[in-house]
Design a protein around this nucleic acid. Structure first.
Lengths: 166, 166
DNA sequence: ACCTAGGTGATAATTATTACCATCTAGTTA
DNA sequence: TAACTAGATGGTAATAATTATCACCTAGGT
């Protein structure tokens, strides 16, 4: 089985395509296409990291100074409901969102909580032919890999070295 | 690849073994073995569901009426730190904990948030021979499967039927 | 140009979690 | 066994993410 970090170069075209279809998808989901929703999905699709609601709020506010934080929270949940965003909350204390709704998986640093998308096609196929398990009917799956990023590894080492000298 | 719900019958012996080794493991982790910690790990090991801190607090308080909620929160995080518990927070709004620290995975109902352990040996082997990915050195992984439990499926159907009649 | 269901902004309320600090105790040492 | 101390606990205040509320507004249909 092969693990592969998601290619960042593909994000531009992906975001453009998603944005062009966004209005249609809102209607399909029974949602009005409001300037606020457009602004939020734009920011989310442009984000390489997996931003928190407050970060999205800050970014959106540059163009829409009157937008409310409650609207950002509400909209993100709504987008998740119609499948236009994904909530990423393993290990985290706070909800994070992901504009990439293609099947994919995550590596995340247990220390600094940074998240990176990865692709493991074999795992995507895992649920094929398994519609249910016991009383659960399966919807989708994602593999969450706990890790330490290089920066936090170094910080860890330094802290340990310090302890030994004091 | 085969998905398999964790066998509940195995939990009794597993809990007993874990409990008998708990004191030793605390010392290994540099922690004092306090009555509070013992009470908390006991409740966690006896829990078939993946309880929240407040549920563990309620259960522990039956035997230790003076225990503080802060202690429960602190202890659960501490137990996670030394590998005696696991935090399960995908899709959830609130932290949930799992006394089962054997490699395993989760199915969870997106509606009622109930969690069930599952075993997928193939996935456990996924990280073998892959110590790192880009700047991340990999620690462990878990597959989180989003699902709808039977109860919530029925509730969903009923709600839809209602909508059509009104 | 209306109409109205649904969306938004502003703010209050809720709630999980963490911080703080005085007191206590597990576990070590004399 | 008594004394010591780093670390643990209880009680409570503080913090911070999220949700609820409600008056007003607007997207999208008629």
């Amino acid at each position: 089985m092969e693990l592969q970090l998601v290619n960042e170069r593909r994000r531009g075209p992906y975001a453009a395509k998603r944005l062009s279809e966004f209005a249609e998808r809102c209607r399909k989901g029974g949602l009005a296409v409001t300037p606020q929703r457009l602004a939020i999905i734009k920011v989310l699709l442009d984000s390489g990291d997996h931003p928190r609601a407050d970060a999205i709020f800050a970014a959106v506010r540059l163009q829409h100074p009157h937008i409310s934080l409650a609207t950002v929270h509400r909209t993100l949940e709504t987008l998740c409901d119609i499948g236009e965003a994904r909530k990423v909350t393993l290990l985290h204390d706070v909800a994070r969102y992901d504009g990439n709704v293609e099947p994919h998986h995550h590596v995340l640093c247990v220390r600094c909580k940074r998240v990176h998308d990865i692709e493991i096609p074999e795992v995507d196929k895992l649920l094929e032919g398994t519609p249910s398990l016991g009383e659960f009917s399966l919807l989708r799956c994602s593999l969450e890999i706990a890790a330490l990023c290089k920066r936090c590894q170094l910080a860890e080492k330094r802290r340990r070295a310090q302890r030994h000298t004091t």
